[in-house]
Write a protein that binds this DNA or RNA. Structure first.
Lengths: 344, 344
DNA sequence: AAGTTTCCATGAAGCGCTTCCACAAGCCAT
DNA sequence: ATGGCTTGTGGAAGCGCTTCATGGAAACTT
């Protein structure tokens, strides 16, 4: 039933080559003649051979694994981020270990644990505010670290310019007739994560309105958690303040979705009586025709992985910053602009 | 700086014993004289030795690792579950690999991957509906599997009697004056997970009301997602249907929290004008004085781990079912019962 | 033509552990 | 005392891989 797995020896025998050659083929070492490489690859294929990662780790003295620490929050953002990271790592025959941060205690335990020491050559930390939680903003590890969706003077950082995204939103919505409203997503109560992204978005948004000379009364802002129901509550609140048409910057697609739902329930036409603009570029935004400020999340993940691999291969330069720019995608939820098609 | 880690050889030398003896101490093998064991343990302590898990895995031919597959949803439920699992595994020197199921595609890829083959001796699958997604409700793996927060005729299952929990809720709330309302948490849209727990709770709840001869009009039910904002929307909706006092079964603590928030905003006293009963036994329930139907989640996790270890050690019996019972915890949100203290 | 360099390939050594056979020492019953 | 047990202990063998010293053959030199 459970046939023993073939080893590198069998592959070598079958291909009629030495052990070392098989290993070199596996590791993409250049010094292998093309014909030989093909012979080995064929043998691997025929035997259904897969290298034993533990043997590799113990012989190589490395773990060939990158850990991604991320908030234990179910969002498309993290799914896409990991997709991006994984793509790059697979090419280099690296494994990915996901570490959802369920609690502060678990994180610290993990960083001090044997697991990390033996199972990680490098770390990617997502959306996490280091300065809040670690002395000097420095993780207690000697492995290379790259931050994503976060910034730090200590480590390479990959992030989206959320402020710019907010500005795009403001400039765009200001073009429409009707009152302007905004929903701000609340920060995490435990402050574990850097949810300043939402504040940044809002700051950019307000700045853009101010630049256009559009006033924004305080009571046009609604604060809620990251959930569609928050959007529904918000729209009901907004409708007490002004009559349609309304222009709503929802701060996040998840919330925008709720605004759309509630508009439908109330018989208001999206893109006409209620214009909604989200943020994130969530896959469902396309499905429901939600305009949004999209972030290139996969690309951000891939870039983070690249930076980390460079560090793991010995690069020693000062911390690098990679800033990504968001892109406004116009869909039915904001319909067509008043006059000509929108050109920023 | 990065001093080389001590190995089992150094430990053996320092303790003045053989290699095998150190290994035996590490693995709790009985045939070691107590004095010897102490000597070895002291040497380990002094050297700060930690065994290399990869070496262990390759020599032992096993991975000494259990994978927990769980929905990528941030709830206390999963945090507590893992806590319970981990406690049992640590004792047996097993590692825990968390695998948040970000998508169906990822799960299937994972199950067919080398990672699983080399990194897992057993699987714990949480809240996952197998029959929906796998031919014959059987996972494509030869490793032992235990389900938790789910049931299956194929595998050992550990779960809470949600129906009973709902019944407890119904019997309890029926004792109070005022109208009865309930919130049902919506199932996942992608049906990936077995969220029938919420239906079961509601079924038990309605059954209890019926048994007491209490009618429950359809419009007293509000359906929403698992978020506090859902609770807030629900309470506003309920207040359109009846005037206080109201008795609300919220279906989940997270939702109950929103009901409490909104009650406060509207100036209604919890436990008097609005009685709220949650479900889960979330830690914050205690903080905010929320009555709830508590589940022993840690214990469920621990039990699942035990069942799995037994399977991994060769136990061959038919699938086992372990049913846990919830417990009603009375707090300020339902105040004191009308007459005597509540005794079920 | 002989020497030098480059290119490929080999397989032993070694990574840090578990397992298992061998053996020593102590114990008991004869 | 002798022969069996039992209980502890030592260390060689081996897990599947990477690395590296070694060397043969081909491709350049001069």
């Amino acid at each position: 039933m459970k046939r023993k797995k073939p080893t590198i020896h069998e592959v070598a025998a079958r291909a009629g080559v030495g052990l070392g050659t098989v290993s070199r083929v596996l590791n993409n070492h250049p010094a292998v003649r093309p014909e030989t490489r093909v012979r080995v690859l064929r043998a691997i294929e025929e035997l259904g051979y897969t290298p034993n990662p533990h043997a590799r780790r113990i012989a190589g003295g490395r773990s060939y694994t990158v850990s991604v620490l991320l908030p234990f929050v179910a969002t498309e953002f993290y799914r896409r981020l990991i997709e991006g990271v994984e793509g790059v790592l697979l090419e280099k025959r690296y494994d990915l270990a996901l570490f959802p941060i369920l609690s502060q205690a678990r994180l610290k335990r993990y960083l001090e644990s044997t697991t990390l020491a033996y199972l990680t050559d490098g770390l990617i930390l997502a959306s996490y505010d280091l300065t809040e939680h670690f002395e000097g903003g420095r993780l207690p590890t000697d492995r290379p670290v790259v931050l994503v969706d976060a910034k730090s003077p200590r480590y390479d950082s990959v992030y989206l310019d959320n402020h710019l995204g907010g500005r795009l939103a403001g400039e765009y919505l200001a073009r429409f007739p009707g009152a302007i409203f905004a929903i701000k997503v609340e920060e995490e109560p435990d402050k574990a994560f850097r949810h300043t992204v939402f504040s940044e978005r809002m700051a950019g948004f307000l700045e853009a309105l101010a630049a256009q000379g559009r006033p924004f009364p305080k009571e046009h802002l609604f604060v809620t958690r990251l959930s569609p129901e928050g959007g529904r509550l918000a729209l009901r609140y907004f409708l007490e303040k002004a009559s349609p048409p309304l222009n709503v910057f929802a701060g996040a697609d998840q919330v925008a979705l709720g605004v759309l739902e509630e508009a439908e329930r109330l018989g208001l036409t999206p893109g006409k009586e209620v214009r909604v603009l989200g943020f994130d570029g969530h896959p469902f935004a396309e499905e429901v025709g939600l305009s949004t400020i999209a972030q290139p999340v996969e690309a951000m993940g891939a870039r983070a992985a690249q930076l980390l691999l460079e560090r793991m291969e010995g690069y020693k330069g000062p911390p690098r910053e990679v800033r990504f720019e968001p892109l406004l995608i116009e869909r039915a939820s904001t319909a067509t602009p008043p006059s000509a098609p929108y050109v920023p």
